[in-house]
C-alpha cells in the first residue's frame, strides 16, 4: 500500500484545490484577490489545477495602491493576458479623490490602511460574496488564529472572538446578504512551502524576487527602495545595493534584503538559513504595535 502515499506538498496542494472548489460550489460571486506577490501567484497556479479546462469561476481583482513595483504590475497584466481570465483593477487613488480621504503623511507615507476602503467599495460594487486571498497562518500570530473560511460583516470587520468552529474539511460558507467570506486556501503553507512549491512547479515570478542592483536608503536597519513615493531627507544616503524582495507589497512599506540569489535554489538556501521572519524582515507596517495585524484585520484588512 505504500505506493498510495502523498508527499507533503501534494497534500497541501490537494487541500488548497479542495478549498478553491468549495468556494466555486458555495458562492454566487467570488473573486480572487491578486497582488502580484508570490503567494497570490501560487493561488492562480492552484486555481488552474482546480478548474482547467474550465474557466475560473471568478475574476482576478487587484486593489492598486498606486505605490506598486512596476515589475509586479507588468507581471500581473502579462499573466491575466496569458490566462485569458478577467482582471479587475481598482485604484486607491480614485477612492482618495472620490471620498476625499486624508493621505497619511511622513517619510514612508503608506496607503496600506487606505487600501481597505477601496477593497470594501470593490466588494460592494461587484457584490462579491467571497474573496480568496493568499494569507498564511505562519505569517503572523493573529493570522494563526484565523479560519480558512473567515466571515466578515457588512463593514468588512473580523471578530476574532466570534469565529465559527471549523471542523474536519467541512467549510460553512453560509452568510447574510452584505456579509462576505475571506477564504485562505494556503493557510497551512509556510513561506518555505510556497518557495518549494514554486520550485517544483516551475512557476515564474516578477523579477524583483531575484537579486538585482537597486538604489536604497537605510532605515532602522531595513533597506527601502528610493522611489517617488518616499520622501528623502538630507541625512539619507542613497546607496546602490544588490537586493531581492522576500515579499512584494507597496514600495513605501516593503523592505528589500541584501542578496546575490539569482535563482530559486539560491533563494531557498537563503531562506533556510535566515534568522528573521518574513514579515519582520520586510514589512515596515507591522512594527506599529504587537497587535498591528489583529487591529487591521478587525477593520476589514486582508
Amino acid at each position: 500500500m505504500s505506493a498510495y502515499r502523498l508527499d507533503y506538498l501534494d497534500q497541501l496542494e490537494s487541500e488548497a484545490i479542495h478549498i478553491f472548489r468549495e468556494v466555486a460550489g458555495q458562492f454566487e460571486r467570488p473573486a480572487l484577490l491578486f497582488s502580484g506577490g508570490k503567494d497570490s501567484i501560487t493561488l492562480v497556479h492552484l486555481a488552474l489545477k482546480a478548474f482547467r479546462p474550465g474557466k475560473f469561476p471568478f475574476p482576478l481583482v487587484h486593489i492598486d495602491t498606486g505605490h506598486n513595483f512596476q515589475e509586479a504590475l507588468d507581471y500581473r497584466d502579462a499573466l491575466a493576458a496569458t490566462l485569458g481570465e478577467k482582471l479587475i483593477v481598482r485604484h486607491v487613488g480614485d477612492t482618495i479623490k472620490a471620498k476625499q480621504l486624508t493621505e497619511p503623511k511622513g517619510k514612508f507615507a503608506s496607503r496600506n490602511a487606505l487600501q481597505t476602503f477601496t477593497l470594501l467599495d470593490t466588494i460592494e460594487e461587484f457584490k462579491f460574496d467571497a474573496c480568496i486571498g493568499g494569507a498564511r497562518r505562519d505569517e503572523e500570530k493573529a493570522r494563526a488564529k484565523e479560519r480558512i473560511f473567515s466571515v466578515r460583516d457588512e463593514f468588512g470587520q473580523w471578530d476574532p472572538k466570534l469565529q465559527r468552529p471549523e471542523l474536519w474539511n467541512t467549510y460553512n460558507g453560509k452568510i447574510h446578504k452584505g456579509e462576505n467570506v475571506r477564504v485562505f486556501p494556503i493557510s497551512n503553507w509556510t513561506e518555505l512551502d510556497v518557495w518549494n512549491y514554486i520550485r517544483r512547479e516551475k512557476i515564474g515570478l516578477p523579477s524583483i524576487y531575484f537579486s538585482h542592483d537597486r538604489e536604497v536608503i537605510e532605515h532602522q536597519g531595513q533597506l527601502v527602495a528610493v522611489s517617488e513615493f518616499i520622501q528623502l531627507e538630507s541625512t539619507d544616503r542613497v546607496l546602490t545595493r544588490k537586493v531581492r524582495y522576500r515579499t512584494v507589497g507597496d514600495m513605501t512599506c516593503t523592505a528589500a534584503v541584501e542578496s546575490t540569489a539569482t535563482n530559486i535554489d539560491d533563494i531557498i538556501t537563503e531562506i533556510i538559513a535566515t534568522k528573521t521572519s518574513e514579515r519582520g524582515e520586510t514589512r515596515i507596517d507591522d512594527r506599529v504595535s504587537e497587535a498591528a495585524m489583529e487591529d487591521r484585520k478587525k477593520n476589514g484588512y486582508f
Partner: peptide, 13 residues
C-alpha cells in the same frame, strides 16, 4: 481559540 503552528524537520512537516 485554536492556534495553528508549523515546524518541520528533515523528516516531516
Amino acid at each position: 481559540d485554536v492556534a495553528y503552528k508549523y515546524f518541520s524537520t528533515p523528516k516531516r512537516k
